[in-house]
Design a protein around this nucleic acid. Structure first.
Length: 208
DNA sequence: TTTCCGATGTACT
DNA sequence: GTACATCGGAAAA
């Protein structure tokens, strides 16, 4: 697996976000010199998902969601934080995966500099707003091509990954309701790596 | 520790 | 005007 093969290796990234979301766990999110391992995500679909930004159709904010898969949709949350999504629906059919938490892998000093209030390493990327701050992701990256090696923000396969999966066979994925929404709350479209300290709050219940 | 609440841009009623 | 895919500081316990 060479770095130039990312687009081919992640060909499965096109489709329904609820299918694709758990497969993003374990992949690397690269932003300049900073790298985080994706440990928590949520799926948001389009016209059939009342909790999705795309539910009511395209707007100036969510336009990237209706474009080709593999691009980054960045929006401002509660007026002060940035949140980032991986677009996975085919053009015209909005479907995206919200990146909720990353585990710092490298460029960790730069992440601390972006988040001086953090008290421990697990405060750096344990939330959708936190990870964008730690990795320096903002409106400039809305629409960035995550499968282009020259992109300022991109996805990468972990070095040890064999095949398309970014996770070891022993990894356990927790599933639960999405965080912070009021509609379609019953859909279990939050996915997180069991036992990982960098998952956001509220922490999903561990398996018995 | 848990709960509560303010900050504040964009979209919608 | 109200809701919102959040966060972190302060108060309560």
């Amino acid at each position: 697996m060479t770095p130039t093969d990312t687009r081919a290796a992640l060909g499965w990234l096109a489709g329904r976000s609820s299918d694709i979301a758990p497969r993003l766990l374990g992949l690397l999110l690269v932003s300049g010199d900073r790298v985080g391992r994706i440990v928590e995500v949520e799926a948001y679909e389009g016209a059939d998902d009342p909790a999705s930004h795309a539910y009511r159709g395209p707007t100036p904010r969510n336009g990237v969601m209706f474009g080709p898969h593999g691009h980054l949709y960045v929006y401002r949350s509660y007026g002060m934080h940035w949140c980032a999504n991986v677009v996975c629906g085919p053009a015209g059919e909005a479907s995206a995966v919200l990146l909720r938490a990353v585990e710092p892998v490298s460029g960790i000093e730069a992440m601390w500099a972006e988040r001086p209030r953090a008290r421990r390493e697990s405060d750096l990327g344990s939330g959708p707003g936190k990870l964008c701050a730690a990795l320096g992701i903002d409106a400039r990256h809305d629409g960035a091509d995550l499968l282009d090696r020259a992109s300022p923000v991109r996805l990468a396969l972990p070095a040890a990954a064999d095949g398309a999966a970014g996770l070891p066979d022993t990894a356990v994925v927790l599933t639960g309701p999405r965080v912070g929404i009021t509609r379609a709350v019953e859909r279990p479209w939050r996915f997180a790596l069991a036992g990982n300290a960098h998952v956001s709050r509220p922490r999903p219940p561990s398996l018995a």
